[in-house]
Amino acid sequence: MLRYIVKRLVWLIPVLIGVTFLAFLLLHLIPGDPAQVILGERATPEQLEQLREDLGLNDPFLVQYARFLGRVLSGDLGRSIHTHEQIAVELMERFPATLELALAAMFVATVVGVTAGVIAAVRPHSWFDHLSMTGALIGVSMPIFWLGLLVIWAFSVQLGWLPPSGRLSHGIQLETITGLHLVDSVLTANWPAFWDSLAHLLLPAVVLGTIPMAIIARMTRASMLEVLEQDYIRTARAKGLRRGAIIVRHALKNAFLPVLTVMGLQFGALLSGAVLTETIFSWPGIGRYVVNAILARDIPVVQGSILFIATLFVLINLVTDLLYKAIDPRIRLE
C-alpha cells in the first residue's frame, strides 16, 4: 500500500511539470500583454516598455519558466502582477469558498442521487424509476448557467426567499477558523451566521450539484441492478433476510464502489469547474479568480493556480483510488 502511494506520488511530478509547462506555453502564445491591461486606455509606449521590463516580461520564455520553477521549488508561488499580492495568499483566501460550495454540491448530489438510484433499482420500471431516470437524463443535459439564472429568477426575484449572491449577509459576524462558513458558525455556535450561510449556499449548491446528482443516480441504479442479480444476494434472500437489510447491508455496499469512483471524478471537476456557477452567484471562489487572471493575462496567477488546481485534482483521484481499495480489499492496485 505505502509503496503504491509513493509510486503514485512520484508519478505526479512529471505530470505537474508537464501541466505547468503547458500552462506557461499557452499563456505565452496568447496575444496581448498584461502591461496593456494594467495601464488601460492611458498607456504610453514608454510606460508599457517600462512595465514589461519591471515585470520581467521581456526575458526569454525559458528564462521566465525556469524562474517560475525555481520559485515554486522554494515554496513560493510568486506575486500577482496586478494586485502585487502573494498568489498563495490569494488562493488560500478563495479556496475555502470553492471547497464549501463543492462539498455542499457533492452532498446534495450524493444524498439525492444515491437515494433515487437505489429506489429506482429496487423497483425497476415503476413510475418512480421512470420519473427519476428521466429527471437524471435531463440533469446531465442541463446548461447549469441557465438553470442558475432561472432559480435566481424564481427564488430570489419572484419569491424573494433566498439571496441571489454572496456568502454571508453584511450584518452578520463570523469568526474565520476554517473558512468554511457552515463549519465556522457551528464551531463558534453562531446560529444566525449558520442559517444565513446556509441560505446563501442553497441555490448555488443545488445548481452546481445538478449534473453530478444525475450522474450518481444513473450510476447507482445501474450498479445496484447488477449487484441485485448476483448469487450472494439471491442466497441472502433465500436465507430469508429482510429485504431492507439486504439492500443496505449487502447490495448497496457493493454497488457503491463504482459510484465512489464517479464521485471522486466529479468532485475534482466541481472544485475547478465551478466557473460558471461562481460567476452567476457572485461566489468569491477560485474558478472566477483563475478565469479573470486568464483574461487579464496575469501570468503568475494563472501559473500558480493551475498548478494548485491540477495538484488537487490528481490528489483527489489518488484518494478515490485508495478509498476504493480500503472498501474492497479484493481489488489489487496494479
Binding site: V15, L16, G18, V19, L22, A23, L26, L27, L29, I30, P31, A269, S272, G273, V275, L276, V290, V291, I294, L295, V302, I306, I309, A310, F313, V314
Partner: peptide
C-alpha cells in the same frame, strides 16, 4: 501526454485555448 491534458480542468483549458 493524455494524463497532462486530463490534469487540466477542462473548462480552464478551453478558455486558455480560446484566449490564444
Amino acid at each position: 501526454l493524455i494524463d497532462i491534458l486530463l490534469a487540466f480542468p477542462s473548462i480552464l483549458l478551453a478558455i486558455a485555448i480560446v484566449a490564444i
